[in-house]
């Protein structure tokens, strides 16, 4: 009897979670799509953003999001994989047990703290050593790269660890060094998990808002170099939604619709890869 009640209760909770999600998606598209149709794709895919005067060009923001995300991936993936391989294959049990929780803890730090560190340390550093305003694609990429490290490390670490010990032994028994074993066997064997980790990290980088607003400079133009300021889709929504009305507000929901589609696609790909293991 008690079990039945608990079961029903959990089902209601689960369904309301799913329902909320469905409602959110519906709401975003319901608000955003009409404007996309009304303004037309050539208006949307231009760089002219003056939503109060009928110009809804979000191209520079899309480019901004893509650049910042790509930069974050370059940094997050290279450091993340190096970190994972070191942890999983070249360090003792004690080091693994200390370092992995610390890296996972990085995921729990609020993004405003990352943004703050960016403003205080990284922005002046980039400005004095590389030039430009300091609030730039580069700065945002570095901070985002650090932010997605835990996602990439913990998922790809788990999939490397999941490669059976017998494979490692087989490889060593053929005279392979540790490094050869990692490159020729373990990474290919753990490939789908590693890719899933990277894609989930990518989703996080695209969606990140607060830290990016604080350090990317938010200039509304297509950047010419990685030292220029950029504005991302998420930044635009967060910065303007507070005062936007009418078509302007709808245009922000259109930004949201694009983000939503990108993230859903990334997650589907990630799930596909994860499922393959």
């Amino acid at each position: 009897m008690k079990d039945k009640i608990a079961e029903k209760f959990l089902m209601v909770v689960a369904f309301s979670a799913i329902l909320t999600l469905a409602l959110i998606s519906f709401f975003i598209f319901q608000q955003g799509l009409p404007l996309i149709f009304k303004a037309g794709l050539h208006n949307i895919f231009s760089t002219h953003w003056a939503p109060t005067r009928g110009h809804f060009g979000i191209l520079s923001m899309i480019v901004g999001s893509i650049m910042v995300t790509a930069g974050a991936l370059i940094i997050g993936v290279s450091f993340g994989l190096a970190c994972t391989i070191f942890l999983s294959e070249f360090s003792s049990g004690t080091i693994q047990k200390t370092l992995k929780p610390i890296i996972e803890l990085l995921a729990g730090i609020p993004s405003v703290v990352y943004g703050f560190m960016g403003i205080v340390i990284l922005v002046p550093f980039v400005r004095t050593h590389f030039g430009g305003p300091g609030f730039s694609v580069l700065t945002a990429s570095i901070i985002l790269g650090i932010m997605i490290l835990p996602t990439i490390v913990s998922i790809s670490y788990d999939s490397l660890r999941a490669v059976p010990k017998t494979y490692r032994e087989g490889s060593f028994a053929l005279g392979a060094t540790k490094w050869q074993t990692v490159v020729m066997l373990l990474i290919p064997a753990a490939r789908s998990g590693i890719i899933a980790g990277i894609i989930l990290g990518m989703g996080r980088a695209i969606g990140e808002t607060m830290a990016v607003i604080m350090i990317a400079g938010n200039a509304l133009k297509i950047p010419h170099s990685i030292l220029d300021s950029v504005r991302t889709l998420t930044s635009t929504i967060a910065l303007e939604l507070g005062y936007a009305t009418g078509d302007h507000r709808a245009a922000l929901f259109a930004c949201g619709s694009f983000l939503f589609i990108i993230i859903v696609i990334l997650n589907i790909i990630a799930i596909r890869f994860k499922g393959k293991e």
Binding site: P164, G170, G175, A189
Partner: peptide, 16 residues
């Protein structure tokens, strides 16, 4: 290990 090779109890063909 090149000169002395080993075959294991369970076949451990690599996932390649």
């Amino acid at each position: 290990r090149k000169r002395i090779g080993m075959v294991f109890q369970r076949p451990n063909a690599f996932p390649l």
